[in-house]
Amino acid sequence: MKTYSELIKDTDRTYYSLNFLLAEFEFTENLEKKIEVMNNSIHCDYFETRDFKPEPYYKAISSCIKKFE
């Protein structure tokens, strides 16, 4: 059994969504059928743009700099 995300090149993975990458951990019994379904699915430009890009995080993870110029 394979996952769809295995087909994505490492260098391209940053463009894929969190949900998509989580599929790494979910194996599928019929990969060809899954690809066919995905290829025939209706695209939504808005969600594609929002969902597939790396995101700026909503806060500072640490605060080790005293002052930024």
Binding site: D10, T11, R13, T14, L18, L21, L22, E24, P54, E55, P56, Y57, I61, S62, C64
Partner: peptide, 14 residues
Amino acid sequence: SCFAKSTVRALKVV
């Protein structure tokens, strides 16, 4: 490169 297959979407480096 360790983050290539990760769920991490934002990375900060010091």
